[in-house]
Amino acid sequence: LFAMLASFGIGCGTQINAIAEVLETNLPISLPRIAIGIIFGIITAIIIIGGIESIAVVCEKLVPLMALFYVVGCIVILCANYDFLLPALKAIFVLAFKPGAVTGGLVGGGIRLALQYGVARGLFSNESGMGSAPLVASAAQTRNPVRQALVSATGTFWTTVVVCLMTGLVLVSSMMKNPAVNAENMANGGQMTTAAFAQIPYIGPLILMVSIITFAYSTILGWSYYGERAAEYLLGKKAILPYKVLFIAVVVCAPVLALDLVWTIADVLNAFMAIPNLIAVLLLSGVIAAETKHYLKHLDEKDESEIPVVDR
């Protein structure tokens, strides 16, 4: 139930809102947000009605493209800011652990807000603990579930440790090099990132725009599948079409909603999904450990068993 509901928040509302914001900021012409919603709603309808095969075909092309565009853009900026990289790393660690920062975080409601935003945004970056990734990993054709689980686990490293670290260094080094790229002068993080990428002449904003759109849109398609699986499990195959129609409606309407409202809804639904899943993971930890040890112990053995094929 919570997975199905969360698909409308983290998987759809926030993502299409991010797409609308980046298009509104970087397009030379003014495009109404509702028009953006309608355009992406039509594209989404065409893709998700085709099922998991259609979603997979689109995502396997979008994901390498978005990674290439964004990572190359970050590398170019970091090379341009090379003399500020060590000071940026030092600033991050000093400000995270110096007494003033720790004390400030522990006063009054500061620790609550620090935990709330830290956990919420960390969860948003990789979905660890929500139970969403297994919904799509279970559709993979593999001889052993442990093998697929190990492959899926690398996603946390790439999204958070690599991509988020690069983004952080880009922002901090850019703020040190160019005082105009400053949180106090920007309405939100998106504008800060746009200003940072503007350091790449001519194509910087284009790289960021393409990256954000592909990042966000591949997430929308993936979560449409998560929600569809959850709806079918709860209500049967008859629920799939109504769910898809509702999901498409959210794609159309979410761009015109207030960003704070969209984020709040997403954070609440994420928590509702994570809590029961984390309890289940703890209860199943013995099974997970035993299966993993067995798989690693027999890693060198040749497995010629048939790969299970599930009709999706």
Rank of each mutant, 00 (worst) to 15 (best):
S211Q: 06
L246W: 07
E53V: 12
L62W: 04
A280N: 04
I10E: 07
R112Y: 12
S285N: 11
P308H: 12
L241A: 12
E232M: 13
V245G: 02
E232I: 13
A274M: 08
L150R: 10
P145V: 13
L123T: 07
A101R: 10
K98N: 15
L62A: 04
I275K: 04
E60N: 04
L115N: 09
A45C: 11
M130R: 03
A180Y: 01
A45E: 12
I275P: 04
L23P: 07
I48T: 09
V251S: 00
S224G: 13
Q148K: 05
W223Y: 06
V281W: 00
M176Q: 14
Q148Y: 00
I200S: 10
P308A: 13
P145I: 12
Q141N: 15
K177A: 15
A56Y: 03
L23A: 05
G155V: 02
I288F: 08
L234F: 00
P99H: 00
N178H: 00
I52F: 06
S218G: 11
L299K: 12
A91S: 11
A289S: 09
I240D: 06
S138Q: 15
A249W: 00
W158V: 11
A80S: 15
N270I: 03
A149P: 01
N277K: 04
S174W: 00
P179I: 06
